[in-house]
Nucleic acid binder design. Structure first.
Lengths: 210, 210
DNA sequence: GGGCGGGGGTGACACCTGTCATGGGCGGGA
DNA sequence: TCCCGCCCATGACAGGTGTCACCCCCGCCC
């Protein structure tokens, strides 16, 4: 497909964002561009693949924070279902772990919502052209932070600890011994350099490891 | 929309949101309306009053979550400086405490970013017309949740506890005895019905009490 | 095969937390 | 004026937490 027709066939765009106001605003913003056409809007990651199958978009703009299925998982599903559709992840939080996981899930670009609105359409065009779009500063931060140091269990235990419950609560929800939970927590605390489970959970969350 | 406006002068709108992408998208969305004109955009609450003085807007759309000065405080300052300018608070999180505090600060409306984009312009018009715009469901939730049960100190201690540090850390930052910190924490835990400080902090945050 | 890392578990120990009783000081309302 | 709520503080106590040593099982890889 050597489709270099710039203004003839517009780039078909799918929008996935749980905030209707933001989604709608971005849709009008992109629809103003003559070479872009928003062909679908969904409010949850769980609806991405179905909408994409129906409307066959060229590029999908996917938010990370969504209620049922998050944007990273949705990206992976979408890439598996429609390999021809490229994904540009758009997110509120520029967490290093998000960037890494998004790229591993098959995203072609990663844009933070701090970036000027004028650049969004250009990011879509670049992604559609097969280029990778990543904020350089965030990429550096991602490298500096390193990757998720946790084991699967540690991550689960730490995620369960975010709710603020006791060790007994976590043990009950994960069906584990209290001692085992404390061992995992202790390990996670050690790996993050924290001094309490709450601090460890905060650090993990800020890095996008949960 | 069939808005027959007798006077041809458009409603002057100021936008305050820290996410440039969202801000820009909302600006284009509102500028498409013939009776609305975005006359200023700022990325922080600290810049709201200065920009309003310069551009004399009729309505200010203010986000709650902003880096230096939050939207609630910015609303209060703006109402004091330019009483003729009405404020419509737009926020990601529909927390009951946010709504209450926004109205107390002098806001005329409160809109969550979940609402459809089509309704935003209408909300601006209503606010400009002197009406109050509040999501009924959120208003009910706000009444059900009651208001901030904490004393000033309890709030401070709980806010400091969010970082995840120990009692000693909190005592150091607030210049208090460790025993006093534990007393305040215990009181806050009791008022929220929580069982740990982390849970209490989570509850307080979800209700917009911090 | 032996080593290694992950998962699950137990027991013990020092330390931190949450609770309560109690006290003093300060300001505002009946 | 007295009373009440808030703030600060102390001390004591039960129970939760974080750490460590040590155990087992399993799968992987040199």
């Amino acid at each position: 497909m050597t489709s270099q027709h710039r203004d003839r066939t517009p780039i078909r765009v799918l929008l996935a964002d749980d905030q209707a106001l933001v989604r709608g605003a971005m849709a009008t913003l992109l629809d103003l561009e003559p070479d872009l056409e928003v062909v679908a809007q969904v409010g949850d990651g769980a609806d991405v693949v179905a909408a994409a199958r129906r409307t066959q978009p060229d590029v999908a703009l996917v938010d990370v924070e969504m209620p049922q299925l998050d944007g990273i998982s949705a990206t992976a599903s979408l890439r598996a279902a429609l390999p021809g559709c490229r994904v540009l992840v758009v997110t509120t939080f520029g967490r290093p772990g998000y960037l890494r996981r998004a790229m591993e899930a098959g995203a072609s670009g990663f844009v933070v919502k701090d970036t000027p609105a004028e650049r969004l359409a250009d990011a879509v065009r670049r992604v559609h052209a097969g280029l990778r779009v990543v904020d350089p500063a965030l990429a550096a931060e991602s490298l500096a932070a390193g990757q998720d140091p946790f084991t699967a269990r540690e991550r689960e235990v730490l995620a369960a600890a975010r709710a603020g419950g006791t060790v007994a609560d976590i043990a009950r929800t994960l069906v584990l011994s209290e001692g085992t939970v404390r061992n995992h927590l202790s390990s996670a605390i050690g790996k993050t350099g924290a001094r309490t489970r709450a601090e460890a959970a905060r650090i993990a969350e800020e890095n996008g490891w949960l």
